[in-house]
Design a protein around this nucleic acid. Sequence first.
DNA 1: AAATTGCATTTGTACGTACATTCTTCCACG
DNA 2: CGTGGAAGAATGTACGTACAAATGCAATTT
Lengths: 246, 246
Amino acid sequence: MSPPATPRYRQLADALIRDIEAGKYAVGALLPTEFELSDRYGVSRHTVREAFRRLADMGLISRRQGIGTRVQAKSAEHRYLASLSTLADLFQYTKRTRLKVLAEHEVKASALLATMLRCKRGQAWLQFDTCRYRIGTAQPISYTQIYVYPEYAAIGEHLAKRSVWVYGLVERYYGERIVEVQQEIGAVAIEPRIAAILGVKPRSAGLQVLRYYIGRGKRLLSVSMNIYPEKRFTISTSWKLEWERS
Amino acid sequence: MSPPATPRYRQLADALIRDIEAGKYAVGALLPTEFELSDRYGVSRHTVREAFRRLADMGLISRRQGIGTRVQAKSAEHRYLASLSTLADLFQYTKRTRLKVLAEHEVKASALLATMLRCKRGQAWLQFDTCRYRIGTAQPISYTQIYVYPEYAAIGEHLAKRSVWVYGLVERYYGERIVEVQQEIGAVAIEPRIAAILGVKPRSAGLQVLRYYIGRGKRLLSVSMNIYPEKRFTISTSWKLEWERS
DNA sequence: AAATTGCATTTGTACGTACATTCTTCCACG
DNA sequence: CGTGGAAGAATGTACGTACAAATGCAATTT
């Protein structure tokens, strides 16, 4: 029996991958055109496009109408992805939690705050100090400061009433879509005021998670700053290899 | 002027998405065949396939030769992805760092260690205590314990000589491919012994990062435990929305 | 000199056809 | 009654054609 014949577009794709990895086509350079390759390998343009599609999926090339096909990366080897099916998965506790709003006030960004919120000094923000509990327990999981634009003041109402997530409110009530979330994780000594709220020793170790919620056109929509006490919470992420060598 | 006409395959894809979200085709059910849709919408099979390809990329459907096209999910809405171009990006410091091996010994997993290493008690591991410096400075960035199987003892040589990453050595010298990395981040009070190495106050706040390196077939290849002192390091991740609603 | 127009190039969309491969179903044969 | 094989149905691969849309460049016009 013949070995399970590999399709032509696959063979062509593999050949191109080899060429790119061998440096025959440098990163940033243009590959031959579809017609050119179709000619050179004696296959139809359709087959070339199918091969290109594969390379594009792997992130090896990028294509632009009127320009051509450009090499984007030398290897698709080590590309690892982590995925969230919902933004709520960023917060990995179960749904059985409740948000309590401790305070709400309008603030003008001090120098320190301006750095954290990535804005100019004096920029006005609406700040919520909140606390999250597992339902049925008195001990909080986390302390959170949430910043939104003052225009979004109405969010305060909803936030107090229903224990939801801010980004959800921003999406629902202001028609903004959260396109990107930047997350910064560090360790901090929990300052006394917050330690009291969380019921831990002042200056004990805590996880600080800063999140920037970004909408269409790089517009910063909201910022949140979470503090999790030691041992009460860990963040886990799973990175998976996207493509396996054929 | 006519508005920038959306291609037919896009229109068809959108129609199908609407139908799926509306529940017209249930999750798990088969969609009409390519020919059927081609007929019904008066487009070529090629166009139907193009539309299906889009849905498949979004993870809404799965296709199997001889069977048909099955609905896999009701909505592709909130799917966010983070990507690493290399595993080295997990560690976000520049390449200008140096690894110093402080100690190397074989250990048998105690109850505590067994939990951390996800293995049975008594399992033998090779443990390296290491420390990472920015080149040219005396102050370490992080303290790291690395665990590998005793069979991989030869790694110690390379680790001491060249300042590389363990997973790279495992991949290179043992022909194992790291297919997945699970990461757990928490806050800890840095214990005195390690605090001394890092040059920080005992029991001050630190970031603890546990990483499980997993090979083909869920085989655990290596585990590392990092401690980063407060303020000296933050982990940043960017999550991007994979698909935008049209 | 600057702006505009038009042409050549390249990928995108869309139609058509044919056969291969994979899987299910059902009928006939042992 | 079970088993094998044929027929049918679905997606996969592969060929062909044609025109549309985006881009860059050169020629032309202002």
